[in-house]
C-alpha cells in the first residue's frame, strides 16, 4: 500500500488485518462506519452543535460514483458481482492539517462532506474523546435503535410451534 496517499491514512499501514493489530485503525474504522450509516439530519445537527467549526480545503470535491457489491455463492463460496450501489466520496484537509475522508452510500454530497469533516476532527487526539461522546456514541445508539425497532417487529412474527403430546394409553 505504499502507493496510497499517506496523507489520508496517517495511522493505517494497510498491511495489518483490519482492526485487529492496530487499535488506532480499528477506532477510525468504527467511527467512519458510524458516520456513513448515520442519517443526514443527525449529522447536520451534530455539526451545528459543534463549538469550533474548522476551516478546510478540498483534496477531492464530493463526487458521486458506484461500488460493485460482491457476494459469495451460497453465502460462503466463490465471489460474484451482485450489482452496483451509488456511493459518494470526498477528501478534505483541515487548516490544522488533519485529512478526512468520506465514503458514504447514496448520492448525498453533504453527507460525504460531513463524514469527512468529522473523520478529520476525530483524528485530533485532543478532541477525540469529546467527539466520541457527543457525536459518535449518539449516532451509533440511534442506528442501533432503528435496527432494534425493526428487529422487534420481525420477532413478533416468529412462529411458536405447539407440539401436541398424545396421552399414553393406560
Amino acid at each position: 500500500m505504499d502507493a496510497a496517499p499517506r496523507s489520508a491514512a496517517p495511522q493505517g499501514d494497510g498491511q495489518s488485518a483490519p482492526g485487529e493489530r492496530d487499535p488506532a485503525q480499528a477506532a477510525r474504522r468504527r467511527w467512519m462506519s458510524v458516520l456513513a450509516k448515520a442519517k443526514l439530519n443527525e449529522l447536520e445537527s451534530a455539526w451545528e452543535d459543534l463549538a469550533q467549526k474548522p476551516a478546510y480545503d478540498w483534496l477531492r470535491r464530493p463526487e458521486v460514483g458506484m461500488v460493485m457489491v460482491r457476494a459469495r455463492t451460497g453465502g460462503t463460496g466463490g465471489r460474484f458481482n451482485l450489482g452496483q450501489m451509488t456511493v459518494t466520496r470526498c477528501a478534505l484537509r483541515l487548516a490544522s492539517g488533519e485529512a478526512g475522508l468520506g465514503y458514504v452510500q447514496g448520492r448525498s454530497k453533504r453527507h460525504a462532506e460531513l463524514a469527512a469533516l468529522f473523520d478529520a476532527l476525530l483524528q485530533d487526539e485532543g478532541r477525540r474523546g469529546e467527539l466520541e461522546d457527543s457525536v459518535i456514541a449518539p449516532l451509533e445508539a440511534s442506528h442501533l435503535d432503528r435496527r432494534t425497532a425493526r428487529s422487534r417487529k420481525a420477532n413478533s412474527t416468529k412462529v411458536n410451534f405447539f407440539t401436541m403430546v398424545r396421552g399414553e394409553n393406560e
Binding site: 500500500m1 496510497a4 496517499p5 489520508a8 491514512a9 493505517g12 499501514d13 494497510g14 498491511q15 495489518s16 483490519p18 482492526g19 485503525q25 474504522r29 467512519m32 462506519s33 456513513a36 450509516k37 461500488v67 450501489m85 456511493v87 477528501a91 475522508l101 465514503y103 458514504v104 452510500q105 447514496g106
Partner: peptide, 10 residues
C-alpha cells in the same frame, strides 16, 4: 486511500 475496510452503509 486507507487500505482497510470501512462500512459504506447497509
Amino acid at each position: 486511500e486507507l487500505g482497510f475496510p470501512i462500512e459504506l452503509g447497509e
